[in-house]
Each structure stands twice: as structure tokens, then as C-alpha cells.
Design a protein around this nucleic acid. Structure first.
Lengths: 340, 340
DNA sequence: TTGAAAGCGCTACCAT
DNA sequence: ATGGTAGCGCTTTCAA
């Protein structure tokens, strides 16, 4: 592997000049710049990341802490990961995976060994045990998810409250007066991620404002449970029933249960599910969907951390960003409640 | 951040001694070892990864090239990623994400800048355009997936041929004489991943041996297409129909189509899908599943590359490993073809 | 506008 | 069994 020294020699300049050509931190004459760039081309020189990190105290690597909980609808997690990795490249950074299995010590490890300059944590719980460690780390950290006490932390998440509101507004606008909301799976609720309550609070708020009734029913992946929830909903509804199922996995089960009851979403029952546009396309049954915009959340998380890394001299930043939700209406839109 | 120099000072030894205590590359007396370890504790010293990489020419980072194709059943890709990251830690390595968007130049970048010591490529196509670059790279690379010409490459994959055979054997053993095999989605087939033909060849082989009939039908996520395939299958079958749907996404659609035809998998139709045990548990309708053992494939891929890194002095290794498939029978097992 | 040289924090060789 | 020291390949300061 050629080094900057080789390039310098080939170009007939000092090694430091090569460095300055690359970094642009000092004016270089056209002549020498060209000589150096040619030499770089010839030798297919690429700077050594380790040496660069050692000298500059910047690795240009961001640690990404990913959850692996089978209940969490892996497909959407994968979308976060993919967008985060691609966005990081736009800012000339790379992503190092840190699995949740490593826990808080894992964070101390990658930061302590200076493998990465900052961290992004996904799926942050309300009372996440890693928060004390995060606060003690002397590098920028961005949380995806809002903990109960976000003081001193930089957080970002989709605006679940607005999502809840919009779902109810949409169904109310379609004429529904009774709306059933299926809860997330118990596994998610138990993690105390507070987006659950934020979403529910949004539905209640809209319900109150609009004078419609919202039924909160148990969710889960258990067909029986969903079956009961659906029956309860049907019993309390006259006309076309309406469901909101924010949890992707619950939504899958709901769809099956409705089908087995002879109900076709979009025709004799209104359903709003949740899915990113990308994934929504794959759904065999088109639904109205809430787009919680994972891609947007991911992009902004990366931008925030890169900005923090750029300006790592200012005082401690404390911010809390919410990304607005969007509702996408697809092939089968919402129906009026009495069969139109 | 404390350095090894600080530790040496605190322990009253030479800096190199600290290094040797950590690496164990030379005998150290109990006395000094303890002094050093205490100092490390006191200072919460962690070695600087950049300096270490620079001096040792080893980053202890493995690049993982992940696909992001919505059609690819992200849930299972995520399982690969997660297991790979965790396994890498067992060998004291970290995983750097390289997205497929970066293409072949991305590989040259992470290797050229010496950000990582080796690569794992997922979802390798039959005639993958990155192969020429991979062959030119002077670092170990492990491919998950078998290209048409694997010469000079290290590959690993599930044994799809055996999977195909076993599926047919199982259904034949349950008494089925006509077995319908749904193809992967066109998006997958178009990538010329050769596991598709390996699987199909396995089904044909077993069918011939056992004297049963195998129908190959179009797959996809399009409900219409699957509907037609199912109808065709039903027309050609007497008694209980039998389906094999290796593609996770196709399987989802198949399940819905069967339900809408009033057919319950496990009762009046036999279905073998594919799912890792982890994901299979989440299925609301228990099926017989082929376990292509993504976790096992992942673990072995990491082990292979770490072994290669360890022994990066021997001559060029050429290996091609297939991980045997397992068929897991779940709650609703296969039925005899005439309603028992 | 450019060059020389001093580190950055390790590893590993040469001594003792 | 341990210490001293020469790099590893960059960035950045100091000089010219």
C-alpha cells in the first residue's frame, strides 16, 4: 500500500504538502496540486484511516446501537439501519455496528477505545438503563426515541402524538364515530417506550376534539387476542367498523383475523396501519397507512450527530426533535361508515 | 483519555511492558502484571484503536456489505446482521457497515483506507459484478451465497439443494403425490442468485427418486399471481394439496390466498414455508418450516473470516462451505393427503 | 507557497 | 523478565 510519503516522493514535494492537498487546509499552487493529484492517481493512494485517526483524533466512524428483538418488526429496523449507513456516507462517515447485547459496557468500549467519534442509539426506552452511561460519555450521542427524562440528551423520534391524532381525524372525516385502536404488542409496551402513550394520547386528544369514541383494545401477535379485540370492536360499532393498528406486526395479524371474519379492509372495514412507503408497497392488501417516516428520522439523526461532531467545541447541546408523521392513502381509501 | 504511557508511569514500568501485559506476547512476572493491571483499573485505561491499528496493521474490524432490497424479506437479513455482529465480538472484532449502494468502489475504499481487515458480502449473485474487485482485494473476503464461478473465492451458504429435497421427501412421506412449488419472487430470480436453481433442482431430484410429481409455479408478492398458481395447483391435485414456498415473502401472500380460498394450512392443505426458528415463532399460523439456518450460516461466515485473518500467512484458501438445512416441524404438522 | 520536523499512542525489535 | 527505542502514516506547528 502506498503512503503519503510515496506520493510526496513521486510528486517531488514534501509529505506535508500531500496532506494539505488532501485536506485543503492551506492554499496550494495549481502546479503542485496537479503534480500531487497525478501522483495520487498513479499510485492509487488512499490515506490510512488508523494513522489519520491517531493524528487527527477523529475516526469518522459513528457507532450505531441496534436492537434485535424479534417482536420489533425487523423490516423497519433494517430500514433505519440502511438509511443511516447511507446518510453517514454523505457526511463522509462510516457506521460501526454495536449490538444491544453488549449493553452499556459496549458503549464505553467503542468510545473508550476511540473506535468511533459518536453514537446513535435506536429504540431508546422510557427509562433506558444505558442513559447514565450515555450522559457520562464525552462524545456526541443521538437517541432515536424519547426517554422519560431527556434532559441533557439529544433525542429524535417520529411525532407519535400527531400520528395518533391524524389517524382519528382521518377516520372521523370518513364518517366513523367509533374507532378501535389496537395496542402495540405486550413485548413493546413492556419496554416502556413512551411512543405508545404518546400515540394513544394523540388519539384521545383528537377523539375529544372531534366528539368521536375511541376504544383501546389489546394488541399482540396472538390471533386469539386480536380475535377478541375485533369481536369487541364489532359489538360496539354500528355500520362500517374502523381500526387503527400502529404496530406493524399486530397489523399483520389483524389483517388475517379480519379476513377470516369475512371482512375486507377498504370495503367493509376501515383500517389504518403503519408502514414506511417502501414497505407499504409490498403489502398485498393496500391499506391506508401512517408513515412514521423512519427514513426521515434516520437521516436527521445522522445529520444531527455529524453537525455535533463538526462543532465539537460549543457547550452541551440539548435538543429534542420530533419528525412529523404523514398519512398516505392508498388504493383502497377509507370508507364512510354505512357502506356508502 | 489515559494512554499506555500514563499506565506505565502509574505502575512504575516501561510502556512496552504495559503493551506486553495486554497482548500476553511475552512472559510477565506476577508482580508487575498486578501492578500494571491495577494501574489500568485505576485509570480506566483503554487502548487507542487507531494507534493500535497503525502499529499492528490490524484494525480488528470486518466490513459487512448489506443488501437493502425491499423484496428481500428484511427480517431475515436483519437476523444475519445481528448474528454476524454478535459473533464478531466473540472473536474480538467489530463490524463496519458497507451498504450495497457503494458498490464495488465501496469495497476498494474500506479496504484501501484500511478501515477493515476483511469483508463479508451478503446476498452474492450468480454473476456478481463485485467479484472481479473482490478477487483483486488483498484481504480475506467471505461470500454468503455461491456465485457461478466460485474459483479462488471463499463462499458459504445454506444447502438449498438439500432443503429442496427434504421438503419433497417430507410431503411425500405424509402421502402427497402431487406437490406444488412456488418460485421465489421475480425480483429475487432476476438477481440470478443461484440458490433458486439449487433449491428447485433438489425438489426435482427427490421427486424423481420418490416417484411423486412436482409442479413449479410462479411466485411473487402479487396476490393475483399467487392466486392463479394456487388455482392451478388445486386443479392438478386430488385430495389434500401440498405447497412448498421457500421465499418468506411469497409465503406471506400464499397464506392469505389460501385463507381466502377457505383453506387452513395444517388442516386441509399442507404447506412448508421457510423461516428461522426465531422468526417462525412469530408466525400467527404455525407451519412446517424449512430452517435454512441463517444464524448458523452467519456464525460460520464470521468464524471463517476470523480464521483467515488469524492465519494470514498461509497460501490462498479456497473453500466453499454449505451449511446443511434442517426441517422443523411445528404445531400443525403435515397431513396425509385425503383428510386423514 | 512550501518544507522540515514533532508528535499522536501503540507494537515489536534489540538490548540487558 | 524487563527497558529502551524505532517506527507505523498521518496532521499540524514552526520556519523559511
Amino acid at each position: 500500500m502506498p503512503t503519503s510519503k510515496d506520493v510526496a516522493q513521486a510528486a517531488g514535494v514534501a509529505q506535508s504538502t500531500v496532506s494539505y492537498v488532501l485536506s485543503g487546509k492551506r492554499p496550494i499552487s495549481e502546479k503542485t496540486r496537479k503534480k500531487v493529484e497525478d501522483a495520487i492517481q498513479q499510485l492509487t493512494y488512499q490515506p490510512n484511516a488508523g494513522a489519520r485517526a491517531l493524528a487527527s483524533r477523529r475516526t469518522r466512524v459513528i457507532g450505531l446501537v441496534i436492537p434485535f428483538i424479534p417482536e420489533l418488526h425487523m423490516a423497519s429496523i433494517m430500514e433505519f439501519v440502511s438509511v443511516i449507513a447511507n446518510t453517514a456516507r454523505l457526511y463522509d462517515h462510516d457506521i460501526l455496528l454495536v449490538t444491544e447485547d453488549e449493553g452499556a459496557p459496549g458503549l464505553q468500549r467503542v468510545v473508550g477505545q476511540q473506535i468511533c467519534d459518536g453514537l446513535i442509539l435506536m429504540q431508546v426506552e422510557g427509562d433506558d438503563e444505558r442513559l447514565p452511561v450515555v450522559r457520562s460519555l464525552h462524545v456526541p450521542v443521538v437517541l432515536i426515541g424519547i426517554p422519560h427524562d431527556p434532559s441533557g440528551l439529544v433525542c429524535i423520534d417520529a411525532d407519535f402524538e400527531m400520528a395518533g391524532e391524524q389517524c382519528v381525524q382521518d377516520l372521523a372525516a370518513a364518517g366513523h364515530t367509533v374507532i378501535s385502536v389496537l395496542d402495540w404488542q405486550p413485548e413493546v409496551v413492556d419496554r416502556h417506550v413512551n411512543y405508545v402513550e404518546r400515540f394513544m394520547s394523540g388519539t384521545n386528544k383528537a377523539a375529544e376534539t372531534l366528539g368521536v369514541k375511541v376504544l383501546h383494545l389489546p394488541g399482540g401477535t396472538d390471533r386469539e387476542v386480536i380475535g377478541e379485540s375485533v369481536d369487541k370492536a364489532l359489538a360496539e360499532t354500528t355500520g362500517v367498523p374502523a381500526f387503527i393498528a400502529p404496530d406493524g406486526t399486530v397489523q399483520d395479524v389483524l389483517r388475517r383475523v379480519l379476513t377470516s371474519r369475512g371482512l375486507t379492509p377498504g370495503t367493509d372495514v376501515s383500517v389504518i396501519g403503519s408502514a414506511s412507503p417502501t414497505l407499504a408497497e409490498l403489502q398485498p392488501i393496500p391499506l391506508s397507512t401512517i408513515d412514521l417516516r423512519p427514513a426521515e428520522v434516520s437521516r436527521r439523526a445522522v445529520k444531527i450527530i455529524c453537525d455535533l461532531l463538526e462543532a465539537e467545541n460549543q457547550g452541551p447541546t440539548e435538543s429534542l426533535e420530533l419528525v412529523p408523521t404523514v398519512i398516505t392513502h392508498r388504493a383502497s381509501t377509507l370508507r364512510p361508515p354505512h357502506g356508502s
